[in-house]
Design a protein around this nucleic acid. Structure first.
Lengths: 109, 109
DNA sequence: TATTTACATCGCAATATTACGGTATTAAAT
DNA sequence: ATTTAATACCGTAATATTGCGATGTAAATA
C-alpha cells in the first residue's frame, strides 16, 4: 500500500487533487509568493530567502514546473523562474469551480 | 529527513499549505463532493460509493475533520457528516486571497 | 440478553515525500 | 585554460502517507 488508488476516481478529481497536493507544501507556497511579488526569481535567491539547501529548492521548483504553474528560462548561468500566467488562470478557474460552489447545507447535522 | 521544516515559514504559509495538503487527495475531494451534493452523508454510504475499505474512509474523514471543514453528528448507530459552512467560507476566503491575487508577470522570462 | 450494524482505532506493509550531500554540467569570469 | 558560480540530478536516510484487516465500542434489533 501507500499507493493511491487513482483508478477509482474521476479524472477531474484526480487532477484537482494532484494540483492541490503540489501546492500543499509551505516551501512551494513560499516560492510562489516570492516569485509573484518579484522578491526573487532566480533559484539561488530563493535558496537564500528560504533556509533550504539548493538541492531541495531545485526539487520543489521541479514539482512546480511539473504542474506547469511556473516556467524557467536560462539567463546566463542562472535560471529565471516566472509564473505561467495562462496556467495560473486555468488553476484559478479550477479552484474557483470547486471552492466557490454552493454548499448544500441541509439540516442533517 | 522526510520532515518538513515548518519553523522556517510564516504561519500563514504553513496554514495554507496544510489545508491544501489535506485537500490534495482524490478520495477526500470525492468525499467532499458527495457530501456537498448530498449524494452521501453517512460514512457507510461513502464506503459503497467509493471503492475503499471502511477503515480507509474513516481515516480520510478524520483528516477532513481535523481541518474543520466537515463535522460529524451521531445519528443512532450511524454518523452523519456535513460541511461546516463557517469553516468552508473561511477556506474560500483563504484560497481566494492566494489564488485570485494579481500576478506580477514582468518580462523576465 | 445475544446479535447485528456502523464506526473508530490500532498496527502493519508498501510506497511516497522531504531534505540534503555529492557530483556533473554549463556559462561566466579570471 | 582554469576557476568560479548556478543549477540539475542522483542516491540515501528519515519520516509521512495510503490502504487495509483485525479488533473494540456503542446503539439498535431480535
Amino acid at each position: 500500500m501507500g499507493l493511491t488508488k487513482t483508478e477509482i476516481y474521476k479524472d477531474e478529481q484526480n487532477k484537482l487533487a494532484s494540483l492541490l497536493k503540489v501546492l500543499g507544501h509551505p516551501a512551494r507556497i513560499a516560492i510562489l509568493q516570492y516569485i509573484i511579488n518579484q522578491k526573487a526569481c532566480i533559484c539561488n535567491d530563493l535558496v537564500e530567502e528560504l533556509g533550504l539547501a539548493q538541492a531541495t529548492i531545485s526539487q520543489h521548483l521541479k514539482e512546480l514546473k511539473t504542474i506547469g504553474i511556473i516556467q524557467g528560462s536560462i539567463e546566463g548561468k542562472s535560471v529565471c523562474y516566472c509564473i505561467d500566467e495562462k496556467v495560473w488562470k486555468q488553476f484559478q478557474e479550477e479552484f474557483n469551480g470547486f471552492f466557490n460552489q454552493d454548499v448544500n447545507v441541509k439540516q442533517c447535522c
